[in-house]
Design a protein around this nucleic acid. Structure first.
Length: 479
RNA sequence: GGCGGCAUAGCCAAGUGGCUAAGGCGCGGGACUGCAAAUCCUGUAUUCCCCGGUUCAAAUCCGGGUGCCGCCUCCA
């Protein structure tokens, strides 16, 4: 298994620090609003990577933080005249609503900054003691980038290169313009915590260092996040963590690419931020997840409505195939060997190994999806040409459906089985009434009363129920 | 200005030295059907932005060009 490591700038074979275990930390959202498409991509990408490690048999420890103390939160809270900590907590709950909808599994630990202030203070003290940080007269603490010779190793920049591009609004208390805050003194009206340097709050970068080291230790396996975090956030995390511990921080760095909207960057100034919540009003979570995994995670992904509609259709194709497969297993499948199935058996194994090979090569989910569609196609084809399909072959196909979904997470699962809502109506009575209507329509068809039969079918379609007359009888599903 | 990425069919998108250039959406033909739907069969890039080079062999490597984009500032 190999994947691209931002630190070395090439693909590397993965060697876990501890055999059979993967420890990963992913930068989570700052909770001052509902999550947007960009957050969703990172969530889904890293959730999928985690699922793949689990599939490969690793014992995965997955940590994802919430930044619940931050300038943006404070600003938003002041606008809404709300307590910042309460506001952040509210949006953490909203985060779970959206992440759950996207079938993103919960992390093993979801640490919050507000609950780790002592760890952060402790780490800053260590940095000061080791000469990597200094306190200014106004109660701020800064990290001295010049003291860390390897500064820039992740983002591939040197301090001198960056100096020319440095901003003008340099704090005169900083020794170097690129020094960054570890602790910020509280201004009036801002939330604060007591510290050896007075009342204040942590800078943005220190939280991830303190929390990842707390839960995963030094030299943990994978640190992930969006590509925009490479600099300065992750660069600073490395400087702080390696400065404080004298040991390697994270061994592999994985970064997902950005989402653009109609080829433009998604940004507040352009007013084109898409919230997951709003998208889910129009598209299924399955389609959104499939859309996000249809492009390699490091490539830019352009969002547009046509692509989402295509994804929605593609999801239906997978669903239909799974339903056909399950119906055959519940009905006409037989134990006897089937000559038609010889070719199918080989195809299944070929698809399975191609899927795994693709995922082993830098998590190629686009190829994985293609394999899934091949699986659907081969399954449909077999079911089409064989009147009495072989049960064990169908069970193997179903196993692959379950495996692929277990990794890509397109459909929700329960007890290891894919859950489709297609065959459920509100309650028993509705279901019986639907069956009655289907019966009436079948009678009409027998009497060649096609006007009535079509009327029933059309009206049901308006109600979101699609009828299909197949050689095996009438099937129905939700639109 | 510095650093980096990308250019593959109508659209989206895999593939990074050699079998007929994956897959999805769309579109065309056929089968099935009372008609649909679903599904199956089948067609849909003589070619991978342009020019030059390396090689027996390149979409895939090298050089040049053109176009698009990202980061360097809070940001997934």
């Amino acid at each position: 298994m190999e994947f691209y490591n931002t630190l070395s700038k090439r693909k590397e074979t993965f060697q876990p620090g501890e055999p059979g275990r993967v420890k990963m930390y992913v930068c989570g959202p700052t909770t001052y609003n509902y999550i947007h498409l960009g957050n969703a991509r990172a969530l889904v990408v890293f959730d999928t990577i985690r699922r793949y490690f689990l599939y490969k048999g690793y014992d995965v420890t997955y940590v994802q933080n919430f930044t619940d103390i931050d300038d943006k939160i404070i600003k938003r809270a002041q606008e809404l005249n709300e307590d910042p900590v309460a506001l952040a907590r509210r949006y953490i709950e909203e985060y779970y609503t959206d992440a759950d909808a996207l079938n993103v599994r919960r992390a093993d630990v979801h640490p919050k900054v507000s609950e780790h202030i002592p760890d952060i203070i402790d780490m800053i003290e260590r940095l000061i003691a080791r000469g990597y940080a200094y306190v200014t007269g106004d109660g701020n603490v800064y990290f001295a980038v010049r003291k860390f010779p390897e500064y820039g190793k992740l983002s591939g920049r040197s301090l001198d290169e960056m100096r020319s591009g440095a901003r003008v609004d340099v704090d005169p208390n900083k020794r170097d313009p690129l020094d960054f805050a570890l602790w910020k003194a509280a201004k009036p009206g801002e939330p604060f915590w007591d510290s050896p340097w007075g009342r204040g709050r942590p800078g943005w970068h220190i939280e991830c260092s303190a929390m990842s080291l707390k839960y995963l230790g030094t030299a943990f396996d994978i640190h992930g996040g969006g590509a925009d975090l490479i600099f300065p956030h992750h660069e600073n995390e490395i400087a702080q963590s390696e400065g404080a511990t004298g040991e390697t921080f994270a061994r592999y760095w994985i970064h997902n690419g950005f989402i653009t909207i109609n080829k433009e960057k998604m940004s507040k100034s352009l007013g084109n931020i898409f919230l997951v919540r709003d998208l889910l009003d129009h598209y299924s979570p399955a389609a959104l997840r499939l859309f996000l995994l249809g492009t390699h995670y490091r490539s830019p992904l352009d969002f547009d409505l046509d692509a989402m509609q295509a994804a929605e259709k593609a999801v239906i194709r997978l669903k239909n195939s799974l339903m056909l497969l399950r119906e055959a297993l519940e009905g006409r499948a037989v134990e006897e060997a089937d000559l038609e199935g010889e070719d199918f058996a080989g195809k299944l194994e070929e698809i399975s190994s191609r899927f795994e090979k693709g995922m082993d090569d830098d998590f190629n989910t686009a190829l994985g999806l293609a394999c899934w569609f091949d699986l659907a196609h081969e399954t449909n084809s077999y079911l089409h040409r064989s009147a009495q399909p072989n049960r064990s072959l169908l069970e193997r196909a179903l196993q692959l459906f379950t495996d692929f979904n277990g990794i890509l997470g397109v459909f929700p699962e329960e007890g290891g089985e894919i859950v489709l809502e297609e065959r459920k109506v509100g309650d028993d009575l509705s279901e019986k009434l639907l069956e009655l209507l289907i019966e009436v329509r079948q009678d009409a068809r027998k009497q060649k009363n096609f006007a009535l039969a079509d009327h029933i079918r059309d009206r049901l379609k308006e109600l979101g129920i699609i009828l299909e007359d197949t050689p095996q009888g009438v099937r129905w599903r939700k639109a």
